[in-house]
Amino acid sequence: MRFDPFREFERIMEQNFTSGARMPRSMPMTARRRGERFFVELDVPGVRMDDVDLTVERNVVTIRARRSGDREEGDEVIVDERPYGEYSRQLFLGDNLDPDGLTAELHDGVLQLTIPVSEASKPRQIPLGSSSGSSASSTSGST
Rank of each mutant, 00 (worst) to 15 (best):
L111H: 03
Y84E: 09
V47F: 05
D70H: 09
G69I: 11
E41V: 00
R66V: 07
P99L: 14
E81I: 12
R67A: 08
V79T: 09
L54H: 07
G69T: 15
V61W: 05
M49T: 01
R82Q: 14
P83N: 09
R82V: 12
N59W: 14
A65R: 03
V44M: 09
V56S: 13
G69K: 12
V44L: 15
R58A: 11
M49A: 05
F92C: 07
L54Q: 14
D95N: 03
D70K: 13
D43W: 08
G46Y: 06
R82H: 10
G74A: 11
I115F: 02
E105S: 13
D53C: 07
G94H: 01
D80V: 09
E72P: 00
E81R: 15
D75L: 01
R67G: 11
R89Q: 15
D50R: 13
V77I: 12
V56L: 07
D70S: 12
A65F: 02
Y84H: 03
D98S: 14
T55L: 13
Q90F: 06
A65V: 00
T103Q: 08
G109R: 03
H107P: 00
V52T: 07
H107T: 06
N96C: 04
G46M: 08
D95G: 05
E41W: 01
P99D: 04
D100K: 09
D95S: 09
E76L: 10
T103I: 00
G74F: 13
G109V: 07
G101A: 08
D50L: 13
E76H: 07
E81C: 14
L91I: 14
E72R: 07
G85T: 00
E81Y: 09
V56D: 01
T114G: 11
L93C: 08
T114H: 04
G85S: 06
L111W: 06
S88M: 03
L91D: 04
P83C: 11
I78Q: 07
V110H: 04
R89V: 11
A65I: 00
P99W: 13
D70A: 06
R89H: 14
E41H: 00
D50Y: 09
I115L: 08
G85K: 02
R67D: 05
Q90C: 10
L102R: 04
I78H: 11
S68H: 07
Q112Y: 03
M49S: 04
D53A: 15
E73P: 02
Y84K: 04
V60A: 11
R71V: 03
L113D: 01
E105H: 08
D43P: 00
D100C: 03
V60H: 02
D51R: 10
N96W: 06
E86W: 04
Q90G: 05
D100Q: 10
Y87E: 10
D80W: 13
S88F: 00
D51G: 01
S88D: 00
L42V: 15
D80R: 13
D95T: 03
L106A: 08
V77K: 06
A65H: 05
P83S: 13
G74M: 01
S68K: 02
L102Y: 02
N96Y: 06
